[in-house]
């Protein structure tokens, strides 16, 4: 049984339609890569899942109809979002960012700091004074503090230095191996996605045009849909 199920999801920004029919299935514990060129609807799909944008079609998370829920209730069901552009609470310290989001469960501040030792070192530092990579780690840590069953990472390594990207990918791999948490990962790095994810779905012009196991993501598929 799927943890998250999207079927023929459509969405619009005012008069401008952005999604024309997205299908997506994520099983518990499964890591799925969502791929596509810029402007194909990846972030819009994430916003629909998190109820930050109204959507039509079927959106079901763990048997709950997401289309009837406000965004904070969708998050409470167990959907954790690491948003594009990080968006930490800039005036709060690292520790305060984590406490503000905390919900009971496996993940607490100590476990997050064990995953990202840099955050532990900068516990009392304001989020605004962190580097981009550290802010990204904090954004992931904050999402983990909600103890989600599905973690959505929207361009989590975008614009970061190669060494920091490696740290983030290592943390994602550790999460997958140790926590058994389902993940939806959006990124442009095909090589890293192949290592981290079990399945992939490709969006093109607001539609899901290909989905399957990572092993089935051949060069031909990539060339046809991603231009790689």
């Amino acid at each position: 049984m799927s943890l998250l199920s999207l079927h023929r999801v459509t969405a619009s920004y005012g008069a401008s339609q952005a999604l024309f029919g997205v299908d997506l299935e994520i099983a518990p514990g499964q890591a799925v890569a969502m791929m596509g060129r810029n402007g194909m609807g990846k972030t819009t799909t994430v916003h629909c899942i998190c109820r930050m944008l109204p959507a039509q079609g079927t959106l079901v998370f763990d048997g709950h109809d997401l289309s009837r829920l406000p965004s904070h209730k969708a998050a409470r069901l167990g959907i954790g979002l690491v948003p594009e552009g990080r968006r930490c609470f800039r005036d709060l310290t690292v520790s305060e960012n984590l406490i503000a989001a905390a919900r009971p469960g496996h993940w607490d501040a100590a476990r997050v700091e064990a995953l990202f030792p840099r955050l532990g070192e900068r516990r009392r530092q304001r989020a605004a004074s962190l580097s981009g990579g550290e802010q990204q780690m904090l954004a992931i840590g904050r999402a983990l503090m909600t103890n989600p069953r599905l973690l959505i990472l929207d361009e989590a390594t975008e614009g970061l230095a190669p060494t920091v990207r490696q740290e983030i990918w290592a943390a994602i791999a550790a999460l997958k191996a140790e926590s058994g948490m389902a993940m939806l990962v959006i990124d442009k790095s095909l090589k890293e996605l192949r290592g981290a994810c079990d399945r992939a779905v490709i969006l093109e012009r607001g539609r899901s045009v290909w989905s399957g196991a990572m092993a089935a993501l051949t060069e031909e598929v990539c060339e046809t849909h991603l231009g790689l």
Partner: peptide, 23 residues
């Protein structure tokens, strides 16, 4: 307190507070 910190966060970025399950 977690309440005060979440309130402070809601003042800064309300949408992000909703994304962590708070109203």
């Amino acid at each position: 307190s977690p309440f005060g910190l979440a309130l402070n966060a809601a003042r800064q970025v309300p949408a992000r507070v909703r994304a962590v399950g708070l109203d």
